[in-house]
Amino acid sequence: MLPKVKHFLFLQVASSDEEEAAMEYKSRVEDEHEDELLIDVPIIEGTGKYKRLFLGDELSIYFVSGDGVKHYFNSHVLGFKDDVVKLIRIRKPQLDAITSVQRRSFLRVAAELEIAIRMSSHVRFIGMTDDVGGGGISFLCDKRWPLKTSQELDCWLLIPYRNGTVEHAQFKAEIVRVKDMETGRNQVMAKFASISDSERQKIIRFCFERQLDYRKK
């Protein structure tokens, strides 16, 4: 389903500042057009503090439907409109770009990041991602590791940010597919089976930063 007028939106803004990127703001859809939504200036619930947005800001957003399901999508600021109150114009998502809480899927970007993987208490190895996103990862590893579909892995992803800081995101990943590569390695596609919101946000922040870098090229 698409967000409609009067729906509350909960959003995070891409930022190189870790604390700012982790902040969640609340807004409401006040109007809609064919390709855009007009929303209130976001605030931090309980404080009344407003968040100033700028043209081009990347947003990770969710809204809650009547049956209690969270629906996630990505958007960005298109501009502003001065009405009775100031409204912010954001890109309306395509229906197929909205994902539910059961299968959250955020922006995915190509990235070579080091990932430590534990198959069992005795088997650990290092792989290299070829893409990452808020809903899962794909990585390359040596064929000698006996990986198979539906297998669950403990993972630690090394994430470098633009400001020079480095974080580790920890999660459990479930293998969706293992592809035999001609290079002598396997490509492993996996979705997050268990990940905290704070760990997921580390990955989303990296994806937003990488996308911004692509747009500047």
Rank of each mutant, 00 (worst) to 15 (best):
Y25W: 11
L158D: 02
A110G: 07
D180N: 14
A169F: 00
H168G: 07
Q201I: 06
S121C: 11
S60V: 02
P42R: 15
E58W: 12
F8I: 01
G48Y: 11
R124V: 03
V166P: 06
S65P: 08
H71K: 10
D131R: 03
D180P: 04
K4E: 08
Q170V: 08
E114H: 13
L37M: 01
S120F: 13
F54R: 12
K51H: 10
M119Q: 13
S138H: 01
N186S: 05
I126P: 03
E167C: 09
Y50C: 14
D154M: 13
G56N: 12
E112M: 13
M181G: 00
K143E: 02
R91K: 14
D67F: 05
R89H: 11
I88E: 00
G46Y: 13
A116T: 00
D213C: 08
I126V: 08
F54W: 13
V85M: 15
L87F: 10
L157F: 13
D130H: 03
V85F: 14
T149V: 14
F192L: 10
V85T: 04
A110C: 10
I159H: 01
I115F: 04
K179R: 07
M181S: 00
P3L: 02
E199G: 13
D154G: 15
A173V: 05
T165Q: 04
G66N: 05
K148N: 14
V132M: 05
L78V: 05
R118A: 15
C207S: 06
I98K: 01
N186F: 00
A169G: 02
G164T: 08
F73T: 00
V69T: 11
D35M: 13
S196N: 12
R104E: 01
D131K: 02
L53M: 14
L107R: 08
K51Q: 15
K191S: 06
V41G: 06
V29I: 05
F125N: 04
D180M: 08
V178D: 01
T47I: 03
F80C: 12
T129W: 00
F63W: 02
I175G: 07
A22Q: 12
N163T: 04
L153Y: 10
S15V: 05
E32M: 12
D67Q: 10
G135R: 08
F106G: 07
R200F: 07
I61F: 06
W145E: 08
V176W: 06
V29M: 08
V64R: 13
E32C: 09
I90V: 09
V13P: 02
Q201R: 07
